[in-house]
């Protein structure tokens, strides 16, 4: 195992993050505050409660998830796409490093950034609402698993993308709608029965539901199913990455 390479990639990626710390920090804080103003105060003033939870507090897990998923995906996809774009990918192909080590370095860094942003948003949220987290450990575990699995997804997108437009395509067309339709701002039980069934096919539902469970002790789907879903998703992404490196697809001619 080439840990030197893992650490070199991780550090180089984190250095990029710290170079743009202000942007990395400020944009999620501002967008979260906006969500609270719009959903928490304006709409929340009319909805009051969802399943016995104040609406402003109810949306916190969904908001954190929304940012974490988009940040993890875009960070990881950009991180691996950029060397392809500048041509420095040759160094990763040349060095004595395996796919596992490359993935660990890039995905580890992207997940760290996403985790950081998730925690910042959570901290921002406490400025607007009273939050009690029922099982902090489960909350952290869900957050971490989401950071990792969506960084893996971003990594795949970055390898697949041939230009900057494609890099934006999946997050814009797939992830954002799935998150918005995944119960970020409402409970699945509020939907008509037919749509409740459709929603069951949205993987993000399971993540947000499980994450919300760790805050309030109640969920749209059983917590075990949520755990299974996110583990399955992580395993699927890992499998795809393993295949990509095995065949050299879009990387090694």
């Amino acid at each position: 195992m080439n840990f030197g390479a893992v650490s070199a990639i991780y550090q180089a990626e984190m250095a990029r993050f710290f170079r743009t710390l202000l942007q990395s920090f400020i944009s999620p804080v501002i967008s979260t505050s906006l969500y609270f103003v719009v959903f928490g105060s304006a709409i929340g003033g009319r909805i009051q409660e969802v399943e016995g939870i104040a609406y402003a507090a109810f949306i916190v897990p969904g908001l954190v998830m929304l940012s974490v998923m988009t940040q993890a995906t875009s960070n990881a996809s950009f991180a691996i796409y950029f060397p392809k774009f500048t041509g420095t990918i040759y160094e990763y192909l040349l060095a004595p490093i395996s796919f596992l080590e490359v993935t660990l370095g890039f995905v580890g860094a992207a997940a760290t950034k996403a985790l950081f942003i998730g925690l910042v948003i959570l901290a921002t949220a406490t400025l607007f609402v009273d939050l009690t987290i029922q099982s902090p450990l489960a909350m952290l575990a869900f957050l971490l698993l989401t950071c990792i699995s969506f960084s893996l997804l971003g990594f795949i997108i970055g390898i697949w993308a041939r230009n900057f437009e494609q890099l934006q395509l999946i997050p814009l067309l797939v992830i954002t709608p799935l998150v918005f339709l995944g119960g970020s701002f409402y409970s699945i039980s509020m939907l008509p029965p037919a749509w409740q069934i459709v929603t069951r096919f949205n993987p993000v539902v399971y993540l947000i539901s499980g994450f919300r469970w760790s805050f309030f002790g109640q969920a749209d789907v059983p917590i075990g199913v949520s755990l299974l879903a996110i583990s399955g998703f992580t395993a699927l992404c890992l499998g795809i990455i393993w295949l990509i490196f095995r065949t050299g697809w879009r990387i090694r001619s």
Binding site: N2, F3, G4, A5, S7, A8, I9, Q11, A12, A15, R16, R19, P83, T86, G87, T88, Y90, E91, Y92, A95, P96, I97
Partner: peptide
């Protein structure tokens, strides 16, 4: 082909790291 935003020193250190050298 070089990482444009990184310094000369960090570029060289990075390459050394990729080969697992102390």
């Amino acid at each position: 082909s070089l990482e444009p935003f990184s310094t000369v020193w960090n570029n060289a250190r990075f390459s050394r790291g990729l080969f697992d050298r102390p």
